[in-house]
């Protein structure tokens, strides 16, 4: 049971949140020009890294805001939480890992 620090409400138990999806994937603005294969890639294929993962959560039982989480998929360490629209921090560099 993780403790996720909601950037708005503060630290809360994992059960208050719902996982949304991998972060920092912008919706293509030129979808019409993209091939079927590339569109499928954009739509369906996701990273599944061992280590830092930049992902999106929603505080479902709290403020209902979406936000970004940089989480280690091995240790569940949460390196950073940050608001939507902010760039992904280089947590490896910042935490010296």
């Amino acid at each position: 049971m993780l403790v996720i620090p909601c950037p708005y409400c503060g630290p809360r138990d994992e059960h208050e949140f719902s996982y949304a999806r991998e972060g920092h994937i912008a919706r293509p603005t030129n979808a019409e020009q993209i091939s079927d294969a590339d569109w499928a890639q954009d739509l369906f294929m996701r990273k599944n890294p061992k280590g830092v993962h930049y992902e999106r959560w929603m505080h479902a039982k709290g403020c209902r805001r979406y936000f970004n989480v940089a989480r280690d998929t091995v240790t569940h360490e949460i390196y950073a939480v940050y608001e939507m629209g902010q760039p992904a921090p280089d947590v490896k560099k910042e935490s010296g890992r």
Binding site: A20, M58, R64, Y66, M84, G85
Partner: peptide, 13 residues
């Protein structure tokens, strides 16, 4: 509701 909020909060800020 979550789907609509997702687009508003994450894509169409």
């Amino acid at each position: 509701m979550a789907w609509l909020e997702d687009w508003l909060q994450c894509e169409w800020l």
